[in-house]
């Protein structure tokens, strides 16, 4: 768990983490916002169901995969937080059946 330094400016962006309302700071990544919101585990693995959490915060470990606005397996540490985001932790493999179909290629 992480806390914000008192000197940092106020968190003004509103988002939801697993349905729970939270606030984040403009300019921060989804992973940072999650850590600040008290998230410890962000997913379970598709193979052994192990709990995992953000590990490197620089895009190389692929541990911080979460579902953002319905799209699974997104790298939370590389995606900027935006107002109104619906962030969900993942249970096992990404489930395409529950996802909106993205625009097909031309």
């Amino acid at each position: 768990m992480f806390r914000r330094l008192p000197e940092s400016d106020t968190a003004t962006l509103r988002f939801k983490i697993d349905g729970r309302p939270a606030t984040g700071r403009a300019g921060e990544s989804v992973a940072a916002a999650m850590l600040a919101a008290g998230v410890v585990t962000c997913r379970t693995t598709p193979i052994g169901g192990q709990k995992r959490a953000p590990y490197c915060l620089m895009g190389v470990c692929f541990e911080c995969l979460v579902t953002i606005d319905g799209i699974g397996n997104r790298q939370a540490c590389l995606i900027p937080l935006t107002e109104g985001m619906d962030i969900r932790s993942q249970d096992g493999a990404r489930d395409m059946a529950g996802e909106p179909v993205t625009e097909a290629a031309p």
């Binding site: 799209i71 397996n73 990404r94 395409m96 059946a97 996802e99 179909v101 993205t102 625009e103 097909a104 290629a105």
Partner: peptide, 19 residues
């Protein structure tokens, strides 16, 4: 690669979003 991907996505549109 692109044409293979195009055909796969036309067969199964849900594939488009997979990494």
């Amino acid at each position: 690669i692109s044409l293979m991907a195009q055909r796969a996505v036309r067969m199964f549109p849900a594939l488009a979003g997979l990494n």
